[in-house]
Deep mutational scan, measured.
Amino acid sequence: TEKEKEVKRLAKERGLSPDQVRELAQRAGFSPDQAKQIADEFA
């Protein structure tokens, strides 16, 4: 999704850790499970 792409782009730009990616995703409105899946891509 657009929102997911945006979260991943920000995460890459900022060099976020997987935990930070998960927090960012949840703040963007993703469920905890979705946020974990997104964060796992950065693990």
Rank of each mutant, 00 (worst) to 15 (best):
V21F: 03
Q20N: 04
Q34P: 02
A28S: 11
S17G: 07
E2P: 08
D19M: 12
L16S: 03
F42P: 01
A28V: 14
K36H: 09
R22K: 10
T1V: 13
Q37F: 07
K5E: 13
E23H: 09
D33W: 09
K36Q: 14
E4N: 05
Q26S: 08
E2D: 13
A25P: 00
A25R: 02
E41F: 05
D19S: 12
G29P: 00
Q37H: 11
T1Y: 14
A11Y: 04
R9S: 05
A25S: 03
K36V: 08
Q37V: 12
E23N: 08
Q26P: 01
R27N: 09
S17L: 09
A11C: 04
D33K: 14
D19G: 08
S31C: 05
K8P: 01
Q20A: 09
F30L: 06
E6N: 08
P32R: 08
Q20M: 06
S17N: 14
L10K: 06
R27I: 09
A43N: 07
R27G: 05
E23W: 10
P18L: 11
A39G: 04
A39C: 04
K5Y: 10
F30P: 00
K3L: 15
P18S: 09
K12F: 11
A11Q: 01
F42M: 09
E41V: 05
A43Q: 10
F30A: 02
P32N: 08
E41Y: 05
G29N: 02
Q26W: 05
S31R: 06
Q37N: 09
D40T: 10
E23D: 10
R22C: 07
D19P: 08
R9V: 04
A28C: 14
T1L: 14
L24N: 01
V7C: 08
S17E: 07
P18T: 09
F42W: 13
E23V: 12
Q26G: 05
E2Q: 11
R9M: 05
G15S: 07
E6T: 08
V21I: 10
D33M: 13
Q26N: 04
A11G: 15
D33E: 15
K8Q: 05
R14S: 08
A28N: 08
K12R: 15
E4M: 15
E13Y: 08
K5F: 10
Q26Y: 07
A11R: 01
S31L: 05
A43T: 09
D40N: 10
R9P: 00
A35K: 00
K36P: 01
P18Q: 10
V7L: 15
E6S: 06
E13W: 06
A28H: 14
E41D: 14
S31D: 08
K5L: 12
R14D: 05
F30C: 02
F42E: 03
E6C: 15
A35V: 04
P32D: 10
Q20D: 08
E4W: 15
R22I: 15
F42G: 02
S31F: 03
F30S: 00
I38W: 03
Q37L: 11
K5A: 14
S31V: 03
D19H: 10
E13K: 11
E13T: 08
E41N: 07
E6V: 09
E2G: 09
S31N: 08
E41M: 09
G15C: 09
T1H: 14
F30V: 02
E6Q: 11
A43P: 03
E23P: 00
K8M: 10
P32E: 12
G15E: 06
R22Y: 15
L10T: 07
I38K: 00
G15Y: 04
V7D: 01
Q20R: 05
A28D: 02
S17Q: 08
E2K: 09
P32K: 10
A28K: 09
Q20W: 04
E23K: 09
L24D: 00
K12P: 01
A28M: 15
R9F: 04
D40M: 13
D19E: 14
Q20H: 05
K5T: 11
Q26C: 13
T1E: 13
G15V: 04
T1P: 13
E4P: 03
D40G: 05
G29C: 01
A25W: 02
R22E: 11
A28E: 08
F30R: 01
F30G: 00
V21C: 10
A11D: 00
K12T: 09
A11T: 01
K5P: 02
R9L: 06
P32Q: 12
G15M: 08
G15F: 05
L16V: 02
R27Y: 06
D33L: 12
D33P: 06
E41W: 09
V7I: 15
K5Q: 14
E6G: 05
P32G: 06
